[in-house]
Design a binder for these strands. Structure first.
Length: 266
DNA sequence: AATCCGGGGTA
DNA sequence: TACCCAGGATT
């Protein structure tokens, strides 16, 4: 359960996970049902969560757990780290929240809270170096309540000590925090995302996957898919662009071709 | 180190 | 409506 919810929480706000986690768990009530799910099964049930390849890695992790760990989610960060899609954050989070193992959990919220606590930060985007964050964490995480501690810090980071406009005046730690009221907001620049027909490529990717979700197991031909997504008046160049996009999705294991028919991958 | 990966929430 | 968002994998 924590394996699934932490994977979801990597990418989605907690309120949305609360909404989408129950139906997913209903479909895959055990690690074994998840492990035996096809790509299509898991991507179908991942709808609304985004980042479809993470759904595949989650299933791969379930398979590794069934095959190598007796069907029991490992409790040590080091072992968890070896699972597909489980990195530094998720491995620590599962050990901490599922087993109450004492470990340093660092996500963007925790990093931000610790950074502001360590010293007065000049801007809202400043973050202390990793070694300092770890050193602080090792000093202040209670030995007997790591799970409750991290829940509290994450909650503080999500509601009070926020990224852009921290509510220092409402913070219970403002009297003791060196960064309270000292930070000015900074704008961070992003590199523009690729655009097709005036819309982001990821949006078109989502449309292709969604059309194939609707198509079900019988799938559809590439030309039908292309016309459905692009409309009947699409140019040859646009059809070619979508075909290239299909190639990427196939490489990612999200879709597959059986003869002339395309489906969500099995 | 830089880039890719979705779709909903918020200013 | 424009912008903001997090962690893992890949290159």
């Amino acid at each position: 359960m924590v394996l699934v919810s932490e994977t979801m929480l990597q990418q989605t706000q907690a309120s949305r996970v609360a909404e989408l986690l129950p139906p997913f768990l209903e479909m895959f009530p055990s690690i074994h049902t998840l492990a035996s799910a096809s790509n299509a099964d898991v991507v179908l049930r991942w709808k609304g969560l985004g980042y479809n390849s993470r759904a595949l890695r989650l299933r791969d992790a379930a398979r590794a757990i069934v095959e190598h760990h007796g069907g029991v989610v490992p409790s040590t960060p080091h072992v968890l780290r070896s699972l597909p899609g489980v990195g530094p954050y998720t491995s620590a989070a599962i050990a901490c929240f599922a087993y109450d193992v004492w470990t340093v959990v660092l996500d963007v919220n925790v990093r931000r809270v610790y950074s502001r606590w360590l010293r007065a930060q000049a801007t809202t985007t400043d973050v202390a170096p990793e070694p300092e964050l770890i050193a602080l964490a090792e000093r202040i995480i209670p030995r007997d309540a790591p799970s409750a501690w991290h829940h509290a810090v994450m909650d503080l980071g999500a509601t009070i000590c926020t990224a852009r406009r921290p509510k220092c005046s409402a913070c219970p730690l403002s009297e003791l925090c060196p960064s309270s009221g000292t930070m000015h907001e900074t704008v961070r620049l992003r590199r523009p995302e690729p655009i097709f027909r005036g819309e982001p490529r990821r949006l078109w990717r989502g449309r292709v996957v969604d059309v194939l979700r609707q198509a079900g197991a019988s799938g559809m031909t590439l030309s039908a898919l292309s016309t459905t997504v692009l409309g009947s008046d699409a140019t040859d160049d646009e059809h070619q662009w979508l075909q290239d996009l299909y190639g990427v999705l196939e490489r990612d294991g999200l879709v597959s071709r059986k003869g002339r028919r395309i489906t969500l991958a099995h």
